[in-house]
Write a protein that binds this DNA or RNA. Structure first.
Lengths: 195, 195
DNA sequence: GTCTATAGGGCGATAGAC
DNA sequence: GTCTATCGCCCTATAGAC
């Protein structure tokens, strides 16, 4: 495919990450981004539904991988299966995106309320997809929604630790750490059950 | 305070809920909402930062109540305390908003991606506020974030059940049900720990 | 690609409350 | 008089329609 210079979406994504980082999200117009990528404003909107979406392009592909991992997972309690799915996603982020790019992107997202909003939305969509995948394995609807939500929250905590800390364990390691903390948390709440 | 007819924000909120329900969110302009409230478009934006915000006005007050409930709560494991805070919030929603209005509002929010996005953002902000309240009680930062996130997810499941079901148990009852399911879920995952 | 409507901000004027 | 809510007209950027 392609035409003159190929990979328009890729160039737009790179240009957006640069400009949003340099000038700030609000101070950068779509026209600015398109210009740096050597494209027209109109072309930007042919590839991305809106200005925010240029930073969340890969989310859907990642979601599909996570859902596939859940479908392929062996038997087990729903929360464990959901966390295995998130671990598969974490491996992909760690390998194909990498710590530095994730860090830079996270910094930009954190700087804008609009972008944080979109990120929350993507997480909610991921949670819905996870829940659907769990239900396909025979999990009860109510339990599936809860397990999916808890797994996504656990992932968010791990992701924040990964992109926030400088030295940084890997994302997979952070996720396993967060999952351990989750187990402790639940055990603590249970211990007080009768009191 | 006020001017001729008082409570401009209240009239704008009511007008917005009506019009969004009748015509749909996208098909309703801010000018339409302002006109129905007998105000100008410019006045709308003085009271609400943007078009979405008119439906999420009370969120901050509710958040403060929940945070206060956590600060006042007796000793206990962090997740339990966080869920007590959400229960306090649930009581307020059940009493001061009521099932019918919550239902209508939820239907409107569900109908628009923009509005769902904003709702997710509010939930994320609530989670951050909860985490801060837990840390103020001496809870470790990592644990606080996780407990807050899990409590909010549990609340979301209960809220969806409350506004989705027709017959409907109360929101507080739904929340207690969801918390029970959460405990079962965690216990299930733990049982498999060693295998 | 061009054209247009809407979101949303800035500023100054005004009209009431105190 | 001050203070504040409202309004009207300016503008640009987003985003959809043609």
């Amino acid at each position: 495919m392609g035409r003159w210079a190929s990979d328009a979406p890729g160039r737009l994504r790179a240009a957006a990450l640069e400009l949003f980082g340099e000038r700030g999200y609000d101070e950068t117009t779509v026209a600015d981004v398109a210009a740096r990528a050597g494209l027209s404003e109109r072309t930007f909107f042919r590839h991305f539904a809106d200005k925010r979406e240029v930073l969340f392009d890969g989310a859907r592909a990642l979601e599909d991988e996570i859902v596939a991992a859940i479908a392929d997972a062996g038997p087990g309690p729903s929360l464990r299966v959901a966390l295995e799915g998130m671990t598969a996603g974490a491996r992909i982020l760690e390998g194909e995106v990498g710590h530095e790019r994730a860090r830079r992107r996270a910094r930009v997202v954190a700087s804008s309320e609009e972008l944080r909003e979109r990120e929350q939305m993507k997480m909610a969509e991921l949670s819905d997809a996870l829940a659907a995948a769990l239900r396909s394995r025979g999990c009860a609807p109510g339990e599936a929604g809860l397990a999916a939500g808890v797994a996504v929250v656990t992932f968010e905590v791990a992701f924040a630790a990964w992109t926030g800390g400088d030295v940084g364990a890997g994302l997979v390691e952070e996720l396993s750490r967060a999952a351990g903390a989750l187990a402790t948390l639940a055990a603590g709440a249970r211990a007080h059950e009768g009191s």
